[in-house]
Amino acid sequence: MSYVDQLLATNEEIKYEAHQHPFVFFSRIVAETIMLTVLLAAAYFITRTQWEGQGWISLGLGVIALVVLGSGVFDFLRWRNEKFLLTDRRVIHLRGIINKSTMDSSLEKINDVQMRQTFFGRMFNYGDLEVQTANENSDNFFGHIRAPLEFKRAMMNAKVEHDRAPNEYLNSASVVAYQQASAPRMTHQEIEEQLLRLTELRQKNLISDTDFDSKKRDILSRM
């Protein structure tokens, strides 16, 4: 089971998943690539000349090159493991390679979502999202997220569905209650006959136990 699966509650579903734009990763890699190129050029120059202590200098350059290369791998893993998740209940910001850090905001507590895009952000489809909640101290900031408009749209749609669900449940419960209240009343003798007939159907395996219990409750509610 992945770490993301462990974060989810029972029956919680992921609606949308996003990462920071690759520019965030590429900008760091470019600087490290330039540094690595300079180190390789310096190492090549040293091997072409005869200096005292040449071996130690080459060793030092090699160690620095390994550090720069390791830094590039670390930057990639950090970018790859930073995720912005939208579920049917909340918004989650997940960071960290080994040590994980999460920050989430419930959909019901989200008041507004502000989006900021620079000129280059509009060109290359990235930007910043700030999720504002009822608690001012728990706002969630998604920096340089890829396709911010799509994520914002998915978030607002999920919030509408989340807020609508309790009302739909109450409406359906009201309909059931109304149907039960408006059903014609039965005498005790009629109820007894209906229950006997229902029991015979179950004994003959003509109806399931679930249907039997449902019909029984319906009959008893009409007393």
Rank of each mutant, 00 (worst) to 15 (best):
D104I: 13
T187F: 04
A134R: 09
E190P: 01
N167F: 11
D163G: 08
Q54C: 02
A134N: 03
I191Y: 06
Y126D: 02
H19V: 10
S58R: 13
T133C: 02
L206E: 11
E52H: 14
H93D: 01
E130Q: 12
Q194N: 15
L86V: 11
D112K: 13
I97R: 11
R185L: 07
I14W: 09
A173Y: 03
G55M: 05
D88T: 09
D112P: 03
R153Q: 11
F76T: 06
D104W: 06
R90Y: 04
L8P: 04
G143D: 04
N111T: 07
V30Y: 12
R164G: 01
Y126F: 12
N137C: 00
V175L: 14
I98H: 07
E192H: 10
N140M: 09
N135H: 00
Q50D: 07
D213L: 15
V131I: 15
I92L: 07
A134K: 10
F120G: 01
T10P: 09
F74H: 08
D139Y: 04
D218W: 05
P166K: 05
K109N: 08
P22F: 06
E108V: 13
D88M: 06
G60Y: 03
E82G: 08
F84A: 01
N140I: 02
G121P: 02
L59P: 05
E130Y: 00
R217N: 15
Q179L: 09
S174F: 05
A43I: 06
V38P: 04
M223H: 06
A165R: 14
T118E: 00
S174H: 09
M35K: 10
F151V: 03
K152Y: 01
L149H: 07
W56L: 11
M115G: 01
Q54W: 13
I219G: 02
F23G: 09
V91E: 01
R185T: 10
Q179C: 00
V67T: 07
F212R: 10
E150Q: 13
P166S: 07
L66R: 09
R28S: 14
R122I: 00
I145E: 01
Q194F: 12
R80E: 00
D5I: 12
E190C: 03
W51H: 08
K216I: 03
K215H: 04
H162Y: 15
K204F: 10
T33N: 05
R116A: 06
L196G: 11
Y16T: 09
Y169F: 10
G55T: 10
G127P: 02
S174R: 13
A43D: 04
S138I: 01
H21Q: 14
H188S: 13
N205V: 13
N81V: 02
G143Q: 01
N157A: 09
K159A: 06
T10W: 14
L40Q: 06
E136K: 06
S101C: 00
T199F: 10
R164Q: 08
F151Y: 06
I191T: 13
T133F: 02
Q50R: 15
N11L: 06
V113A: 01
P184I: 07
A173F: 07
W56H: 04
S182V: 09
T87D: 03
R116E: 04
T102A: 13
L195R: 08
T33M: 15
D112S: 12
L170S: 07
R185Q: 09
